[in-house]
C-alpha cells in the first residue's frame, strides 16, 4: 500500500519532468537552449520512473531488482555524450554559417 503510493508518486513526478523536457523543446528559442530539455528528462524524469519500477517490483514480488540501477547508470553515462555531440555540431554549423 505505502509502496504503491510511493511508486505512484515517483511515476507522476518522473512523468512531469519528462513532459517538461518536451515542453522545453517547444518553448525555448534556439538549439542551445533546447538541448537543456532532453538532458533534464533523462536525469530526474527517467531516474524517478526507474526507481518507481524498482519499488513496485519489490512490493509485488518481494525481490530486490537491481536491473533498474543499470538502466539509470547507462542513461547517466550516455546522456552527456549525445548532448555534447549535438552541441558541438550546432556550434560548428553556426560558426560556418557566419564565416
Amino acid at each position: 500500500m505505502y509502496a504503491e503510493a510511493f511508486a505512484s508518486f515517483l511515476i507522476v513526478t518522473g512523468g512531469f519532468f519528462v513532459l517538461l523536457g518536451s515542453i522545453a523543446l517547444i518553448r525555448l528559442p534556439d538549439i542551445f537552449t533546447r538541448l537543456h530539455g532532453p538532458t533534464k528528462a533523462t536525469t530526474l524524469g527517467v531516474g524517478a520512473i526507474v526507481i518507481a519500477s524498482s519499488v513496485a517490483g519489490y512490493a509485488l514480488t518481494g525481490e530486490v531488482s537491481v536491473k533498474e540501477l543499470a538502466v539509470s547508470l547507462f542513461l547517466f553515462i550516455t546522456a552527456p555524450v549525445s548532448a555534447h555531440l549535438l552541441a558541438k555540431a550546432a556550434q560548428k554549423d553556426r560558426g560556418e554559417g557566419r564565416g
Partner: peptide, 15 residues
C-alpha cells in the same frame, strides 16, 4: 567535469 556539468540541468558543456 564536463559530464557533470551537462547532467546538472541549466548548464551544458559544449567543448
Amino acid at each position: 567535469l564536463a559530464s557533470i556539468i551537462t547532467l546538472t540541468p541549466g548548464t551544458l558543456s559544449i567543448d
